[in-house]
Amino acid sequence: MLGPATLFVLAFLLLPMLVVLRYSVNRYVPGGLMLQVFTLENYAHFFQDHYFHKVLLTTVWVSVVCTIVSLVLAFPLAYFLARTRSAAKSLLVMLVVFPLLVGNVVRAAGWMALLDTKGVVNSTLEALHIIKAPLNIMYTTGAVMIGIISIVTPFMVLTLQSVLEGINYSVEEAALNLGASPIRTFAKVTLPLAMPGVIAGTSLVFILCMNAYATPVLLGGPSFQMMAQTIYDQISNTQNWPFGAALAFVLMFVTVALTVIAQMFLQRRYKSAE
């Protein structure tokens, strides 16, 4: 039987997606909108044009790097938060969540103030005579990655922490008592036990990265394009809804496929470790 939640999802998620899927097989009419036909030309356009392949590859590459870096940064913090018995634990969790209270655009503006040619970073380095001319940090792929990682890391920390909280740490202590080194204990005991959190966290963060819009627009260079920005350009700036819809479905398919493949890979590793 269909419950209210199922009906809600059907009405507000699946049906709009079906409408967009239908748009993606229509034909764009410059200066008008679209012809209601059935054509795969929008998908063909994507597959035939190397520019869009490059945009998709950039999106995937940036997302993979940001996901891995945020995992590396978040794990020690999440581990500390999970194990600490400090009275300030709630405050520390609040501090992790705090950046999420600021919108992505405002946060990007903050990064711009820091990374600009006359920004805090360059001014400080120049004042310390470490550099003679300002570094070009803004409008680079590195700036986009810094911006995205700062946004997604709290999500990774919270997801990992919730799983790490449930681990029985006497297992870790047993491994150490039996002579395993801390690195071996982490690799053979802690990480396999935390794997459900790693899978959930990386999936969540990867999806967020694949759909990033404001940060790449504001911190990326002129030729830097990720998929969300390209879709927005097609839908909003040129009114090419059919192609924009096709790009949206390509992005969704690639995101889901890569997430499922990564999950399967990590789960196999996790099971083999068990």
Partner: peptide
């Protein structure tokens, strides 16, 4: 304006792929 509306999409493509690339 009619000319602009008709060509806007191909101009954006040119702008992204040729000029900004």
């Amino acid at each position: 304006f009619r000319y602009i509306a008709k060509n806007n999409s191909q101009w954006l493509q040119w702008w992204n792929q040729e000029f900004l690339a």
